[in-house]
Design a protein around this nucleic acid. Structure first.
Lengths: 279, 279
DNA sequence: CGCTAAATTGAAACCTTTCAAACTTCGTGG
DNA sequence: CCACGAAGTTTGAAAGGTTTCAATTTAGCG
């Protein structure tokens, strides 16, 4: 692998610039997280309300199953700065995490140290579901900005699914949703660059709309590098397409600020079927 | 969309050559399946034993939860010929299906009638998990050869997860496995054609090995068109790569019969990490 | 045995990546 | 508060890989 190729990969912050992060390090990081519970909730509750408005916020669900959640929920929360990790691939699963505020990226590390951004996650979404089988994290999660995550012990999750009303249905729906998302992204494999990027932007737009924000105006929390890596495109291609989309009046780009001007045309380009959740 | 582009899409058999299959049709097909239970089990049991040997056969799990499974399991089974559908996208979910014998492909239908092969499934695997949330099938499933599927009512599945020992753990693992598979395939998005195809062949090889068959010699149940569609490659590219792989001594290709000659080299080409389940 | 579908092979067009360089932004330190 | 350096982004030009178009060969089926 050339140095050029590596340049398109994720850059770990200096403190974590270790070729292979040993499980021991990751575990100690998790222990630190456990110690950082009993956090101020005034700020945490805010994004959850936004999620609840949507009715599909998984974080709210998880909050509801925490002991004493109504009055003053004692969450096992953790704040992260940009670049900090929630957990590393290979680490032991100690809890399922929900994003409370901010945003994160999930990525895999290849044999050659190269990395692949699998997905981005926003408030209300769960993070470590892929570890429920092996009990080892199959991916790493890094904060894209100042972020708050909430940890729920797996035992609590299992109890909730097994005994709570609607808990099982909730989880079945969650699993199904994950698979459907997989199906959608797999359609991008055969698509051209413009389809991938337009789909990505619209998907993001719908995410923000679902959270009660403007759908046509938002800021990208991730770098061009992350976008390109995630979509399987060179960052130059992403940049060029952004420019072209703006030239064609589809959207306005100001650094990481995106304004969608012609959502319909963008939808046609993304080849989004009507039945899809993004209409 | 040009006629040429459509040529790479799935061709429905004449009997089903309807642009949009109405849910009514799909539902009647499901009803026919329900009527076709009480099937001969002598042949059905065989692939299940093979799965049981592996220890991870979901069909076996599901069989175990059927009433009276030990002596003469009364399975809601259904036999399909090549080209027949288990269910169509948009149809109401009536049961979760497991492949008992044969093989199927799962695909989505786009707005323009174009289609995308999402995955292939073999004995022991479950099919309609993506419908557990909406209770509507999010994808269509077609038999690639003479195939037998077993239907398990969702209520039974839920009861099993909730009350049976290890049932929940089993399902959590299943969901996690699905997500991990998603992660792996998403790595192919940014890969070149040779990586995609070599990964596909090795993945298939491991599938067969897990089922007690030879890992280095197997036959492709699907057409080049299906392979190309699934991998996001033109069928010509698939064909050319097959030829090249053979020329380079990586494998031998005789029509749909594949013999892997140099699995190590193929693994290097596929960039498979050591920790992966495919070693 | 002939027809039709599937698969293979060749050549040109197209798209994306790669290489290279300039430019902008942001954080840090003077 | 400004300057500087590092990182991120944009833009151009050439190289490479994949698709498309076209034609041929092979296999499957009635």
């Amino acid at each position: 692998m050339t140095a050029r190729a590596l340049a398109n990969d994720i850059q770990l912050p200096a403190a974590h610039a270790i070729p292979e992060v040993p499980p021991a390090i990751a575990r100690s990081a998790d222990r630190a997280a456990d110690a950082a519970h009993l956090l101020d909730n005034s700020k945490l509750a805010e994004p959850c309300r936004a999620c609840a408005a949507r009715g599909g916020c998984h974080a709210t669900r998880l909050m509801a199953m925490m002991p004493g959640h109504t009055a003053s929920p004692r969450l096992h929360s953790r704040t992260l700065s940009q670049g900090e990790h929630v957990f590393y691939e290979g680490a032991e699963l100690k809890a399922v995490y929900a994003v409370k505020a901010g945003s994160v990226k999930t990525y895999l590390t290849g044999a050659a140290g190269d990395e692949q951004v699998v997905s981005f996650h926003f408030p209300g979404e769960l993070l470590s579901l892929d570890a429920l089988g092996t009990r080892l994290h199959g991916s790493s999660v890094m904060a894209l900005e100042n972020t708050v995550v909430c940890a729920v012990h797996v035992a609590h999750l299992e109890e909730y699914i097994r005994h709570s009303t609607g808990g099982l249905r909730w989880f079945l729906g969650l699993a199904a949703e994950e698979i459907v998302r997989h199906h959608h992204t797999s359609m991008l494999t055969r698509s051209k660059a413009e389809v991938r990027l337009s789909y990505f932007l619209l998907d993001l737009s719908m995410h923000f709309r679902g959270r009660g924000n403007y759908a046509h105006e938002f800021t990208l929390n991730m770098s061009r590098q992350d976008i390109g890596n995630h979509l399987g495109l060179a960052i130059e291609t992403v940049s060029r397409l952004m420019t072209r989309f703006q030239r064609d009046g589809l959207l306005e780009v100001d650094r990481r600020r995106i304004t969608i001007r012609d959502a319909a045309a963008l939808g046609v380009m993304a080849k989004i079927p009507w039945r899809s959740r993004m209409q």
